[in-house]
Design a protein around this nucleic acid. Structure first.
Length: 267
DNA sequence: ACTCGTGTTAGCTG
DNA sequence: TCAGCTAACACGAG
C-alpha cells in the first residue's frame, strides 16, 4: 500500500496514459471525486488529453490539454491507503509491466474513476476502500518538499519549528511529503531515534543522521519493491525483536498511528 | 466475532 | 496557534 516509492511506480504507469484522446470519463463517485459534482471533471477532460504525469510525496497530478489544445486544470490523483492506477491498451493489457490479470470487468464496482481513450484503452483508479481521491487543481503547494529531494538543512529547519513528536512531524505531509507510517518507523529505527522525541530537540548531528536514514530507507524501498521490504518492518509485531541488537520491539501510539521501535536503541 | 490498520482531511477540543 | 482526537471511507488480515 502506497507510500512514496509505490506512488512513484504508479506515476510511471500514468505516463502510459499521456497524449491519448479522452472520449469518456466516469467521475460519478461523489466521495472519491469530492468536492466536484458528477460530470464536472468529465466536462473539462472530454475531447482533450493528459500531457504530463507529476508526483510530489504521495500526490500525483496530470497536466491537461482541452479539445482546442489549450492548457486545462491539473487532474489530481491520490491513492489513499490502497488505491492503484491501472492503464490498459485496447486489448485490456495493462501498462507498466504489471503481470496480474486485469480484473476490471469482475470488480467494476471498485473502479472509482475511469477515463476511456479513443484507442479503446482506459485509465482507472481502482480502490476498494474509497480512500483515494481525484480532484481538479489539487493544492500541491500545501505539501512540504518531496522526501526524496529534501535537504538536511531543510529538514533541520522544518523539524525545529515544532515541539510535536518526531514521528508526527515525519508523517505531516506539510512538513515533508511522501513518508507514511511504515517508512517513518523504518527511518527512525535506522537512525536510532525515538519516535516520541520532541522534534525541535534534535541536534544537528541527529538531524543529519535522520536525513541519511530517510534517503537510505527510500532508496532501499524503491529498489526492493516497496516500503514493506524495510529491514525492521517484519519485526513490527508482538514478540518481534530488533534485527540489530535483539532487544524486544516496543509498541505504542505516536502521532495517532501504530508505532513500533527498539526499546533499547531508540529509548 | 471482533479489532486493527502502509492515508487524508474537516471539525472539534484543550 | 498548536497538538491531539474523532469520524468518514470499506475491506482484509489476524
Amino acid at each position: 500500500m502506497p507510500e512514496l516509492p509505490e506512488v512513484e511506480a504508479a506515476r510511471r504507469v500514468l505516463e502510459h496514459a499521456l497524449d491519448r484522446r479522452i472520449v469518456a470519463v466516469d467521475d460519478t463517485d461523489e466521495w472519491v471525486c469530492r468536492p466536484h459534482r458528477p460530470g464536472e471533471i468529465a466536462s473539462v477532460l472530454l475531447g482533450g488529453t493528459l500531457t504530463a504525469a507529476h508526483r510530489r510525496g504521495k500526490s500525483m497530478w496530470c497536466d491537461t490539454r482541452d479539445v482546442h489544445g489549450e492548457e486545462g486544470p491539473a487532474l489530481g490523483l491520490h491513492l489513499g491507503m490502497g488505491g492503484r492506477i491501472v492503464v490498459t491498451d485496447a486489448d485490456g493489457v495493462r501498462a507498466g509491466g504489471d503481470p496480474r490479470p486485469d480484473r476490471a470487468p469482475r470488480q467494476a464496482g471498485w473502479n472509482r474513476f475511469t477515463v476511456r481513450f479513443d484507442d479503446g484503452g482506459e485509465l482507472r483508479l481502482f480502490d476498494k476502500r474509497r480512500l483515494g481521491r481525484v480532484r481538479l487543481d489539487p493544492d500541491i503547494d500545501a505539501l512540504g518538499p518531496d522526501a526524496e529531494h529534501i535537504t538536511a538543512a531543510q529538514l533541520r529547519e522544518r523539524l525545529g519549528r515544532s515541539h510535536a513528536p518526531l514521528k508526527a512531524r515525519l508523517l505531516d505531509q506539510k512538513v515533508l511529503a511522501g513518508v507514511g507510517n511504515l517508512l517513518a518507523d523504518e527511518t527512525l529505527w535506522q537512525a536510532r531515534l525515538s519516535p516520541s522525541r520532541p522534534s525541535d530537540e534534535l541536534d544537528r548531528s541527529e538531524v543529519n543522521r535522520l536525513h541519511r536514514s530517510l534517503r537510505r530507507a527510500l532508496r532501499a524501498a524503491t529498489a526492493n519493491g516497496g516500503v514493506h521490504t524495510g529491514r525492521v518492518i517484519e519485526h513490527r509485531h508482538a514478540d518481534g525483536t530488533c534485527p540489530r541488537c535483539g532487544a524486544p520491539m516496543v509498541h505504542g501510539t505516536v502521532g495517532g498511528r501504530s508505532t513500533w521501535w527498539c526499546g533499547k536503541e531508540q529509548g
